[in-house]
């Protein structure tokens, strides 16, 4: 279990968190390989979002270890984890409503993240070009000066994805990226996601099985904070344990 494979981007070992005795995640272990797209599925309350929270430092683990490229994340602050190269998209779109689309993207640009760095941050040609590029990718090029508050739900989701893109993380974690979207938006988003998960490792939580089948390299099924089944979509789909949990009695 402890064979440290340097080829893994992320190694989660025996991860456990307990809230007042209730173990939301219980002895979970899994690895993510470079360029892998890992999809996590499972019934409500299985602990999927909590796993992402634990990896990105939002919730403190009770025990276990999460190593990103060999670095232990559990002792790091959220911002340090982000700067190390782990990006996270939340379930509900969370963008800065009072700032413009341009400014939203600019804040995620990976430069000037210290106090004085941000005080003397210059909006040079490089920054502007990069933001224009990203805006093009996320279908918001015409809305750069719009306040984020005025965007539609789908546009906010795209903006948040754009904020992650500009950050250029090696490991990207997406929590239900197509939830609450219209059919047209959903299609566009799937296209967008397919493009951006190309050169990096990704962990996705998703319920839309068609979408999952489309993007997943491997699937992990969580149940009551533990791995129920793991492997290719094909294998997981035919696993009797999974069928039992999902179809129930």
């Amino acid at each position: 279990m402890t064979n440290v494979n340097p080829n893994f981007v992320l190694m989660v070992e025996d991860l456990t968190v307990s809230f007042d005795g209730f173990k939301a995640v219980n002895g979970l272990s899994f690895e993510v390989e470079p360029n892998e797209c890992r999809v996590m599925i499972g019934p409500n309350g299985a602990g999927k979002t909590t796993v992402l929270d634990l990896i990105c430092g939002r919730t403190r683990a009770t025990s276990g270890s999460v190593r990103f490229k060999g670095k232990e994340l559990l002792t790091m602050r959220e911002d340090q984890i982000v700067l190390a190269g782990v990006g996270r998209k939340f379930q509900t779109p969370s963008v800065y409503e009072d700032l413009s689309v341009f400014e939203n993207l600019e804040l995620s640009y990976p430069r000037g993240h210290s106090v004085f760095g941000s005080l003397f941050f210059r909006r040079d040609a490089e920054v502007k070009t990069r933001i224009a590029e990203i805006a093009e990718t996320i279908f918001l090029a015409d809305l750069l000066d719009e306040k984020a508050a005025f965007l539609s739900h789908g546009q906010k989701q795209w903006l948040e994805i754009g904020m992650l893109l500009i950050q250029d993380p090696e490991l990207l974690m997406l929590d239900e990226p197509v939830a609450g979207m219209s059919v047209a938006e959903r299609k566009k988003t799937a296209e967008l996601l397919n493009r951006i998960i190309d050169h990096r490792s990704v962990i996705v939580i998703e319920h839309d099985m068609g979408f999952v089948e489309d993007i997943a390299t491997r699937v992990t099924v969580l149940h009551q904070g533990q791995t129920l089944s793991e492997g290719s979509m094909e294998r997981v789909k035919n696993d009797p344990k999974v069928i039992e949990v999902y179809l129930g009695h």
């Binding site: 939002r58 700067l83 996270r88 804040l107 993240h113 941000s118």
Partner: peptide
Amino acid sequence: SKLGRLLIAMRDQEDRVRFSG
């Protein structure tokens, strides 16, 4: 400065700022 925009961002969504690094 960008710091000024960060302050506004922090006031409204502190958590998100953290996860922007």
